[in-house]
Simulated scan of single mutants.
Amino acid sequence: MLTPTIPGPDPNTRTPRFKLPPLACDAHCHIFGPHAKYPYAPDRPYTPPDAGLDDFRALHARLGVGRAVIVNASVHGTDNRVALDAIAVSNGAYRAVANIDDGISERDLRALHDGGFRGCRFNFVRHLGGVPDKRVFERVVAMIAPLGWHLDLHFDAIDLPVYAEMLAKLPVRYTIDHMGRVKAADGLDQLPFRTLIDLMQRDEKCWVKVCGSERVSSAGPPFTDSVPFARRIVETAPDRVIWGTDWPHPNVKAMPNDGDLVDLIPLFAPEAELQQKILVSNPAKLFEFDRQE
């Protein structure tokens, strides 16, 4: 038995008041284990309770989610089997983002692509290991470019201004996780958020995830102080914004109820047209849900 070092998600998911549209996509979520079948990496930065496929499906059934993108978390290292296996039994409803390094072969990369992966993730966040090796980062970017994959990038807000020029020069599309992890208490005019908005305005490769309200919020549940940030992001580039729950919410200060997170959507995107974009058409485009192989 492994002893978890972080709590699991709220087990009593509330049915949201807001009804998600058909084929709404949770474009940032995780599956953890079960570790007996999908072992956690020995050098993992934390140990979560198992949050497997059955719980994952039950969550989305309660919320009304029709599609999902599984972001393979650092707890599984570069072993992407948990997401690969989930996609295989999803009847086309799942895609995934991989954790890889430059040790992966082109054959293995193609196998992930054929299995439904459409991007790979790099963590720049300090508590998850900090800055990736520049050589590895550049080599992986060169490897994924021919497949049309994007980079999924996780930053501490304070570091966004440092990496802005590097991001703008990337040869592939990239998504920035959790609204850049900006702090709501620092206001809309803070430098990290201005940097994020500037990237969205001048770089058509830049996509942003309006997820992680519980990480952005300074006030705590129900995290409504994150809404002005999400609203500004949606207004800035409505064709390059996607939404996710971040279930099962590893390493958060206040555990959210996922029903509450869904009910934030009409606050930052009250227009039906915008809801359709960020929940359905944008993720379908980025992750090729509707493409016939």
Rank of each mutant, 00 (worst) to 15 (best):
G66D: 10
R173D: 15
V141T: 15
I176G: 12
S105F: 09
P146W: 02
P283Q: 11
A145T: 14
L63R: 04
H35T: 12
H249A: 05
D50Q: 06
L191K: 11
N91F: 07
H35I: 07
F56V: 01
V140K: 05
Q276W: 03
L170K: 03
H154L: 15
G148S: 03
V131F: 02
L170V: 04
E138T: 15
K253F: 10
L279V: 01
E106H: 14
E214Y: 15
F18T: 14
V131A: 10
H60D: 02
F56C: 01
W243Q: 01
D263T: 04
R215H: 08
R62C: 01
F193I: 03
P250F: 05
H127S: 11
L53T: 09
P48W: 03
P161M: 05
P39R: 13
T78M: 11
D55P: 01
A111W: 06
P39C: 11
R240L: 02
I100L: 07
V172C: 13
V252C: 12
P221M: 11
S90R: 06
D246P: 02
M1W: 00
V75F: 03
G77Y: 09
A96N: 07
D79S: 08
P132F: 06
P221V: 13
R14H: 01
G64F: 05
H249K: 05
G259E: 11
I100F: 08
S105W: 09
F223M: 12
A145S: 13
P250S: 02
H113V: 03
T245P: 08
M1R: 08
A93P: 00
F223C: 12
W243D: 03
A68S: 15
D290L: 13
R232V: 15
P161G: 03
S226Q: 09
L53K: 09
D26H: 11
N80Y: 07
L2S: 09
G33K: 05
P22D: 13
H76Q: 09
N257Q: 07
Q201E: 11
M1Y: 07
D102S: 15
V65A: 02
H76D: 05
P238S: 08
A83H: 04
A68F: 06
F117D: 00
A145L: 10
W149R: 06
A272S: 07
A88N: 01
V162T: 15
A51V: 03
A237S: 12
P16V: 12
E165A: 10
D203F: 13
L188K: 04
